[in-house]
């Protein structure tokens, strides 16, 4: 019987391995119903295609929108869809927290010697969510080649950093929104307005929206750093909403800060849960 008394890096590695193991077990379970899995994946791909089509139609109609061409618009869309798709794949199940609390399965997670967050995030892990990620990555690849991007070394190096911070940011938003379910177990719909609503918002260049909204999603819930600011950086364009250009460099820091805040929300939610015993 081994106990968790190992140094931090080893614990982290073990947590990651456990994540992969739990996720893999769920994939195997789903693979027992291949038809259902294929159908659901197909539906997710179709939904992604419809969203993409909508972006193409909006831009196709107008030619350019707030100075963005079709492919520049698709770049914004692809950045947002990739980030949200990956976050959904990694952390999407967290939004079922309230359900786990109501049925008591969250208690079962608490009496296992594994972080309840890992158990929650992998619960019902499904490869069908790749149906969002793969098309998004394809569109991203196409728009990155078609758009007029000045590929300097620093820009090429920044691309993976920006993608990683967009994904981390989305995970953080997802987790923080789900933590409201510690307080109100049926707050899932409200939290979804932030997660899915946020995704819809970031799929278009923010310059389309009013100044108030742009400021809110830059400074309050920093969704602007998911796709808008990275796109401005990649296209090397001044911010049409009038915010300082230096903001685009803040994306990684914003992502780290958001993760720290989301982790704090999770911890305090867990503490609250364990002291209410609902």
């Amino acid at each position: 019987m081994a106990e968790t008394h190992a140094p931090a890096p080893e614990r982290l590695a073990w947590t990651l391995r456990t994540y992969v193991r739990l996720a893999w077990t769920w994939c195997r379970a789903l693979a027992q119903y291949p038809a259902s899995l294929l159908l659901l994946t197909g539906m997710v791909v179709l939904a992604s295609a419809a969203e993409m089509g909508a972006v193409a139609i909006v831009f196709g109609h107008a030619g350019t929108l707030v100075g963005f061409t079709v492919f520049e618009g698709l770049l914004v869309y692809a950045l947002a869809a990739t980030a949200f798709g990956c976050a959904d794949l990694l952390m999407g199940s967290v939004e079922r927290l309230g359900q786990h609390i109501r049925t008591g399965s969250f208690d079962a997670m608490l009496v296992r010697p594994v972080s309840p967050l890992v158990q929650l995030a992998t619960d019902g892990f499904s490869p069908r969510r790749l149906g969002k990620v793969v098309p998004a990555l394809a569109v991203l690849a196409v728009s990155l080649t078609v758009c007029d991007i000045d590929w300097t070394v620093s820009r090429a190096l920044m691309l993976p950093v920006l993608l990683a911070s967009s994904i981390a940011l989305c995970c953080a938003v997802w987790l923080a929104a789900s933590c409201t379910q510690f307080v109100a177990t049926d707050a899932r719909e409200a939290a979804n307005s932030l997660t899915y609503g946020g995704q819809a918002l970031t799929e278009y260049p923010l310059a389309l929206y009013g100044r108030g909204i742009v400021r809110a999603v830059t400074f309050a819930v920093p969704l602007a750093f998911v796709s808008w600011q990275p796109a401005l950086y990649l296209l090397d364009r001044p911010d049409p909403t009038g915010l300082p250009a230096a903001l685009r460099w803040a994306a990684p820091a914003v992502a780290v800060l958001s993760c720290v805040l989301a982790a704090a929300a999770w911890r305090s939610g867990l503490r609250r849960y364990r002291s209410t015993g609902s």
Binding site: A2, T4, T25, A108, R112
Partner: peptide, 30 residues
């Protein structure tokens, strides 16, 4: 809590701590 979890076994009769959609064997292997 986490250290204690590996020293005790807990069963809630009203609900299962097995993975609902997985074969029993998978739960036990996990």
């Amino acid at each position: 809590r986490t250290r204690l979890a590996s020293r005790i076994g807990v069963v809630f009769g009203q609900r299962t701590s097995l993975w609902w959609d997985l074969p029993l064997w998978d739960s036990l292997a996990l």
